[in-house]
């Protein structure tokens, strides 16, 4: 499903060279729910950006759903991202001027669906997150948890194979965080592969598999920490 081999990413400024990722290898199978943890600056974000094809990498190979990402141009990468990947961010990143309907509409527009199909998908997606009654509301009129659910609906509307979640509960209080987490698990159970970056170990433990990044590499000892318990919802 997703296969990274020896990915290398170097950031250069005039003064320093930072190896954000070095010989990073990872394989994720279809239907998995993987949590990626690691201290600040370990390369989590770089990993996410490369996975989402928002950034290019300097070495190694990355196969997404059987397609070699390296060598794709911006247009092809954007297309692939639009079709296969849904993004969920810590700060929701809803577009403040657009109402819920139009926010969820954004990725569908770039996919080029007909207006009928878009409408259908938007309504379905918002229903799935329990917000179908608020199509015309602006993001600012919603609570943080509701905003994140809209963001999830937006990520789901295009029916991607992958969800990339970056600290999805970081800006939420614990009750809302739990609700969002539950929603993600549901989605995962329905077949969508999820990769979630977090530094909340409790959340991480609810994933099928934990990957710990240290200094731009997958730390070995993550395998030594099997998932011992599933936290109660």
């Amino acid at each position: 499903m997703l296969q990274m081999n020896n990915i290398k990413k170097v950031f250069r400024t005039d003064l320093v060279e930072t190896h954000a990722l070095r010989d990073f290898s990872l394989q994720v199978e279809e239907g998995e729910f993987v949590a990626v943890t690691g201290p600040s600056g370990s390369g989590k974000t770089t990993f996410l950006n490369i996975t989402g094809m928002l950034e290019t990498f300097d070495g190694g190979t990355y196969m997404l759903d059987g397609q070699d990402v390296k060598g794709l141009n911006d247009k092809q990468r954007s297309r692939l991202r639009n079709e296969k990947i849904g993004f969920i961010f810590q700060s929701f990143n809803l577009i403040p001027d657009l109402n819920l309907f139009d926010n969820v509409d954004v990725p569908l527009r770039y996919r080029g669906f007909s207006s009928k199909e878009r409408k259908q998908r938007i309504e379905n997606a918002l229903e799935r997150v329990g917000l179908s009654a608020r199509l015309k509301h602006l993001p600012s009129q919603l609570s943080g948890g509701q905003q994140q659910r809209v963001a999830i609906a937006r990520a789901l509307a295009g029916e991607p194979r992958f969800l990339l979640a970056d600290e999805p509960t970081g800006n939420l209080d614990s009750l809302m965080a739990r609700q969002v987490m539950q929603l993600l698990e549901e989605i995962n159970q329905q077949g969508t592969t999820i990769i979630m970056v977090t530094h909340d170990s409790e959340l991480a433990r609810r994933a099928h598999r934990n990957i710990h990044i240290v200094d731009g590499q997958v730390s070995d000892y993550q395998d030594l920490q099997p998932v011992l318990e599933v936290a109660e919802a």
Binding site: L54, K75, S78, I85, N93, V106, Y110, R154
Partner: peptide, 16 residues
């Protein structure tokens, strides 16, 4: 720019 970032993440190409 932040909105553009979101749009890019949601699949808009540079050209779009």
């Amino acid at each position: 720019a932040p909105e553009v970032g979101v749009r890019r993440a949601l699949g808009a190409s540079q050209g779009e």
